[in-house]
C-alpha cells in the first residue's frame, strides 16, 4: 500500500480505531436478545482494522492487532466448539443454552451463558478470517 493517504484520514484513523473496537464489543454483548451478535461485531472490528490499514500501512495494522490473525481463527473456533460441551456434560443435547446469572457490583445482574461464549468465538473467527484475507491481499499488492 504505497498510496499516500490523506492527512485527514491519518488523523481520524487514530481516533476511529478504538471507537470502532468499543462499538464492536458493544454490538457483541448486545446480541442474542437484541440486534447485534458475534458476526456483525466481528465485521465491524475487522473493518476498523482494515480502515487503520488504509490510513497507515500494513506493519501498523499488524501491530494494532497484536496477534497473528490466524491465532484468532484457531482460538475462536476452539472457543465456539467448546461452548457446546458443558450442556453435554449435564446430560442435555449439545449446544443447549446454559445461563449463569451473576450479581456484580456496579453492573447489576449480568448473565453469563454458553451462547455468549459461542458468540465471542464467532467474533474472533470473523476478525481472524477477514483480516487474514485482507492482509494477504494487501501484502501481495505491495510486492507487485
Amino acid at each position: 500500500m504505497k498510496i499516500e493517504s490523506s492527512i485527514i484520514l491519518r488523523a481520524a484513523g487514530h481516533f476511529l480505531l478504538p471507537l470502532l473496537i468499543i462499538f464492536s464489543i458493544f454490538l457483541l454483548l448486545r446480541g442474542h436478545n437484541e440486534p447485534g451478535g458475534g458476526f456483525i461485531a466481528g465485521l465491524v472490528a475487522a473493518a476498523a482494522i482494515a480502515l487503520y490499514l488504509f490510513s497507515m500501512d500494513i506493519q501498523a495494522a499488524r501491530k494494532a492487532l497484536y496477534v497473528d490473525p490466524r491465532d484468532l481463527i484457531g482460538g475462536g473456533l476452539v472457543l465456539a466448539v467448546l461452548s457446546g460441551i458443558p450442556a453435554a456434560l449435564q446430560g442435555k443435547a449439545f449446544f443447549t443454552s446454559l445461563w449463569w446469572p451473576v450479581e456484580l457490583p456496579l453492573l447489576g445482574e449480568v448473565k453469563f451463558s454458553t451462547p455468549l461464549i459461542f458468540d465471542i468465538g464467532v467474533y474472533l473467527v470473523v476478525i481472524g478470517s477477514v483480516l487474514t484475507i485482507v492482509l494477504n491481499l494487501a501484502e501481495a499488492e505491495e510486492k507487485s
Partner: peptide
C-alpha cells in the same frame, strides 16, 4: 449471505492467485 461472503472472498483470492 454469511456463507456466500466467505466463499466469494475465497473466490476473489483464488482468481488473484490464478492471475499471478
Amino acid at each position: 449471505i454469511v456463507i456466500s461472503f466467505g466463499v466469494l472472498a475465497f473466490a476473489v483470492v483464488l482468481i488473484h492467485r490464478a492471475y499471478e
